[in-house]
Design a protein around this nucleic acid. Sequence first.
DNA 1: CGCCGATCATTTACGAGTGAAACACCTGCT
DNA 2: AGCAGGTGTTTCACTCGTAAATGATCGGCG
Lengths: 180, 180
Amino acid sequence: MTDNGNRPEDGPADATDTVATVLRQWRDVLPELDTDPMRLIGRINRSAALLRQAEDAPLRRPGLTRPEFELLGALRRTGRELTPGDLARETFSSGAAVTKRLKQLTGRGLVERRTDARDRRVVLVGLTAAGRELVDSVLPEQLSFEADVLSGLDAEERHRLAELLGKLLTQLEGRLAPRL
Amino acid sequence: MTDNGNRPEDGPADATDTVATVLRQWRDVLPELDTDPMRLIGRINRSAALLRQAEDAPLRRPGLTRPEFELLGALRRTGRELTPGDLARETFSSGAAVTKRLKQLTGRGLVERRTDARDRRVVLVGLTAAGRELVDSVLPEQLSFEADVLSGLDAEERHRLAELLGKLLTQLEGRLAPRL
DNA sequence: CGCCGATCATTTACGAGTGAAACACCTGCT
DNA sequence: AGCAGGTGTTTCACTCGTAAATGATCGGCG
């Protein structure tokens, strides 16, 4: 028998992914370091990076960037006009970024801005027909692409994972994001 | 009895986090859409974003940016000199970005570059004493901070989550990152 | 031996995001 | 009514990352 895979801290899934190698390297150099949090945080970050990179592929065809698509999605799913401030909160980006993206998207005829009648400081942003059609055509592709990417896990595993992440996220949002 | 919380697709943890609200909005507007992948992908992305934002806090004190710290960490944990190309692969960023960061870090006396004797194209990057001391002093803080952030989950949940993410990541890396 | 293609690092030009300041407008108070 | 302070959006100056071009060097092959 070899000496790998039998340490109590190493589960079976820890053997092969990048984070596991990183953890082994740290253990070799600084054995007394408690690297346990990396197991989660490293994997969340790395998964997010890989997914982000992969997810962008279906969006490239319609020439959209991911944050642009999220902005359009926010408008589509709320079903009403939103202000730039709303959009910034909804897409977790800065107000300045939203302004820039709106310039792009209005230029392409996907969204429309109009100033609110009651309060002339605020502008209301809504999807045009073209914008709505674009979202409705891209979103199913995007979702089926995502489903395919996740198919390495079976339904039960995906469910447990989503549930645990939901719990983590609830905690994090309560603790780290008082703004909501 | 109310109608919330009893749909088969909604686990108990789905009730409160941001992603759950987004899913409800989509269901109200496009009920026939299979939003299941969002449950995972949305949560991974959102968790990563929150963690990233939080994690940067302990690094600000020594005036380090996250990618800079990851570069230093790669040098520390491998325990040897690395080339810019190695560092780019190790930190998942472009070569140009690495060059820029090396300029910063050599300026601060945290790393040293020397050209390889055998192959004068390649440059070998190593930690200075100050660099190693910096990593060794910041890393434990960083890890205990992370442990604190994750404390909303108990040990068993963290373990299962890490395991499932490890499995997912293994699949993703096999499929999406042939370069390794 | 000398050239040709490949490889590694760096430079350059550019696009995208950010925080802080600026601007427009509203609301409450006197 | 008029001003003070607050809120919503945009602009500005800057930083950072990237892709593509550049420069330097190696290895092999005629």
